[in-house]
Amino acid sequence: MPIDYDKLKNWHFPDLEHRYEAKDTILYALGVGCGADPVDRTELPFVYEDGLKALPTMAVVLGYPGFWLKDPNTGVDWRKVLHGEQGLVIHKPLPATGTVIGRTRVTEIVDKGPGKGALLLSERDVVDKASGDLLATLTSTTFIRGEGGFGGPSGPTPEPHPLPERAPDEAVDLKTLPQAALIYRLSGDYNPLHADPDVARGAGFERPILHGLCTYAVAGRAILKACCGNDPARLRRLDVRFSAPVMPGETIRTEIWRDGGVISFRARVVERDVVVLTNGLAEVG
């Protein structure tokens, strides 16, 4: 059954209220690898309640509507869904604790043609409930394999950020924990692909894989460390394209190009020399 463009484009998302405590902020940071060095005081504020700060990338799990494309009423075969791109604009630093409202919307569905799939573009605002301040805007591109040809618009599609042709200015290696996916999923993404070996094998992987948004956050940590002195208030934007999965326990090397406040980056798994994130763009203050 083809995608119903009008129905999916106008999919209703109720406002989602999300209360989070200090332990949730710490759990998220532990899930993306913070605190691996017990004497690194620059990361301590992300995992210790005394002076606690939220990682900017934690916005991706706040006000999250869940895996809504699994609802059969969407007309989408959820098994054909891949996360293609993720963007984040930070308008104000995230409070370490608080209550936020998530407001999600579908912005476009691009028809790539019969047999070629579709791109679903969506946005989510994360708003502080107490003040009404807009804290972050998230953008996501989801690739739906093989479901093109439904008569939707053929474009435009987001242009990827081009990486410089020169060698990277620096690289940051961060090793993930073997149990990283099991910790990260406690922040809200319970897809069994990241926990159950049988489900992973059924999807073509030898073992459970790391969440793409966990890999994204590890690259964000590298940008924070190298370009922001681990000050979360200095990171303004983080956009990336997903290119390959990471296995928990692997080392992620984030390669960084600096051009003033504009940072280009990509990430690769050291052990397999595979690029897992590409066309990365960060803006720092």
Rank of each mutant, 00 (worst) to 15 (best):
I223N: 03
C227A: 13
D239C: 12
D198S: 10
L193I: 07
I183M: 12
I183E: 10
R237H: 10
S187E: 08
T278R: 09
I252A: 03
L224I: 01
H161I: 00
A282C: 13
I223M: 06
E250Q: 15
G249E: 06
A181C: 11
A267H: 07
R241E: 14
P178Q: 01
I252S: 00
G155E: 04
R258M: 12
G280N: 07
I256P: 00
V276W: 00
A267P: 01
A200M: 05
R166N: 11
G155A: 03
P208M: 10
L277R: 06
F242E: 10
D239F: 12
L174P: 00
A226K: 08
R236H: 15
A217G: 14
D231A: 07
L182W: 00
H211V: 07
A203L: 11
L177E: 14
A226I: 07
L182M: 11
T278G: 05
R207M: 11
A267G: 14
D231N: 15
E271M: 12
A219E: 03
R234A: 13
I252N: 04
P248G: 13
P197M: 06
E165R: 13
S187G: 01
P153E: 10
V275Q: 03
E170P: 01
E170Q: 15
V276A: 05
I252Q: 08
E206Q: 13
R241G: 08
R207T: 13
R272S: 11
A219Q: 05
F265E: 11
S154I: 00
H194L: 14
G220N: 07
W257D: 11
E165T: 15
A222E: 05
P192A: 06
K175L: 09
A180T: 01
G151S: 09
E250M: 08
R266H: 13
F265P: 08
P197G: 09
P248N: 07
E165D: 15
R234W: 12
T157G: 08
V276N: 00
A282V: 05
M247N: 10
P168K: 12
A195Q: 02
E255F: 13
G260D: 09
P158L: 06
D173C: 13
P248W: 10
V246H: 08
G188H: 04
A167K: 13
D239R: 04
S154P: 06
R253T: 04
V270N: 00
A267D: 02
T176D: 06
P153L: 06
A171N: 03
R236L: 15
C214M: 08
P160R: 02
I252W: 08
D196P: 03
P153W: 10
G151P: 09
H211D: 12
D169V: 12
R221L: 14
L277N: 09
P168E: 07
I263T: 02
T254D: 02
G249L: 06
Y190W: 14
R253C: 11
L213I: 12
R241I: 04
A233C: 09
P197A: 14
V276G: 07
E159T: 14
C214V: 05
A180F: 02
E165A: 15
T176H: 04
V246R: 02
R258E: 09
S264E: 10
D196S: 04
L210D: 11
